[in-house]
Simulated assay, not measured.
Amino acid sequence: MIEGTPPLRRADRLFDIIQTLRGSRRPLTAAALAEKLEVAQRTIYRDIATLQARRIPIEGEPGVGYVLRKGYDLPPLMFSAEEVEAIMVGAHLVQRIRDRKLQDAAMSVLDKLRETVPGELRAQLASPRFQVSDGTAVRPEGIDLHDVRNAVRSCRKIRITYRDEQGEDTSRIICPIATIYYVDVTLIAAWCELRIALRHFRVDRVLQSQVLEDSFAAEAGRLMAAWRATQPA
């Protein structure tokens, strides 16, 4: 697993603090909130102060715990029925790509929608009038797609053991620059140090993987430009 997972954006974290307090039946300490959101306690103290300054009715104090005053509700998000359905279809399509963290994030988006859209749209979320097939992609066993996406964002190299279509296993170090999701397979677009070229690797053919400390940040822009130049317009 990759260390140092990027933290939530602050706006997302503030929203999650409100949602966590809304769902709790007892006061929550800064330590409990910090553990849930994977941040430092001092970050929670700052965030609570920010929310209180924005007139969010959070009551409590350090060392005792915090509660959200009953009756508080977030203002409704202004989505049309078509926009809500587009988000729902997209969130369900994410289930086909076998990326557990991305799947969880998609369901979290729907949970947030249910809490914030007006009542007439909540019924649409509760009883969708569509179905998305499960897809045929194989869940990868030798690599975690969450790690891949983090390595792409942080420009970290990955060591992989890869089995090609002839059944030959090779050890490679790659510089991952993008993930490509198809219905039946997910690919990693990367610079391969073994082949000294850009390559696409099927995640279901990765037997083992390890995210390295080595960075390719200085080359990331050039590699991305070179890869994009090879893609259909």
Rank of each mutant, 00 (worst) to 15 (best):
Ala123Phe: 06
Gly119Ser: 14
Ser108Asp: 12
Tyr72Asp: 05
Thr50Ser: 12
Asp16Ser: 11
Ala40Gly: 07
Gln124Ile: 12
Arg159Lys: 15
Phe201Val: 03
Ser171Pro: 00
Ala105Thr: 13
Thr230Val: 05
Ile174Tyr: 06
Tyr162Leu: 07
Pro128Asn: 08
Arg199Gly: 00
Ala86Leu: 12
Pro76Arg: 09
Ala220Val: 02
Arg149Gln: 12
Ala53Leu: 07
Ser215Trp: 11
Asp169Cys: 10
Asp16Gly: 01
Thr230His: 02
Leu33Cys: 05
Val206Trp: 10
Ile56Leu: 05
Leu28Gln: 06
Ile17Asn: 04
Gly23Ala: 12
Ile143His: 03
Glu59Thr: 14
Gly71Trp: 08
Asp99Tyr: 09
Glu59Pro: 02
Ser133Tyr: 10
Gly221Lys: 14
Gln124Asp: 06
Arg129Trp: 01
Leu68Gln: 06
Arg9Asp: 13
Thr230Ile: 01
Leu113Asn: 04
Arg149Leu: 08
Glu165Leu: 12
Asp214Ser: 13
Asp134Ile: 13
Arg55His: 12
Ser127Glu: 14
Gly119Ile: 02
Asp111Met: 10
Ala151Trp: 05
Ala233Pro: 00
Arg139Met: 10
Ser108Lys: 13
Leu207Phe: 01
Ser80Cys: 03
Ser127Ala: 14
Leu145Glu: 13
Leu125Lys: 11
Gln124Pro: 05
Glu61Asn: 02
Ser24Asp: 07
Pro128Leu: 04
Arg26His: 12
Leu207Asn: 09
Thr179Trp: 00
Leu125Pro: 08
Ile173Thr: 15
Asp73Ser: 13
Tyr72Leu: 05
Val89Asp: 02
Met88Leu: 15
Ile173Leu: 13
Ala190Glu: 03
Arg46Pro: 04
Glu193Ser: 13
Thr43Val: 10
Arg195Asn: 06
Ser154Phe: 01
Gln131His: 15
Pro140Gln: 12
Asp111Lys: 11
Asp111Pro: 00
Arg222Trp: 03
Leu21Arg: 09
Gly167Leu: 08
Ala197Asp: 15
Glu120Gly: 02
Ile160Arg: 06
Ala11Lys: 12
Ala190Cys: 15
Arg13Thr: 08
Glu115Pro: 00
Lys70Glu: 15
Leu121Glu: 08
Glu115Ile: 02
Leu102Met: 15
Tyr72His: 10
Ile160Trp: 02
Val94Asn: 03
Ala40Trp: 02
Ser209Val: 06
Ser209Pro: 01
Gln41Tyr: 01
Thr161His: 07
Ala81Val: 04
Arg129Ser: 15
Trp191Glu: 06
Ala190Tyr: 04
Leu194Ala: 08
Glu165Ala: 08
Thr43Asn: 03
Cys175Asp: 11
Pro75Ser: 06
Arg10Met: 11
Gly71Thr: 11
Asp204Asn: 11
Leu68Glu: 02
Ile158Arg: 06
Gln95Tyr: 04
Cys192Ala: 03
Ala137His: 03
Ala31Asp: 14
Ile17Lys: 01
Ser80Leu: 07
Met224Tyr: 03
Arg10His: 12
Ala226Ile: 09
Ala31Tyr: 07
Ala220Gln: 14
Pro176Gly: 09
Val138His: 05
Pro7Thr: 07
Leu223Thr: 10
Pro62Met: 13
Leu110Gln: 08
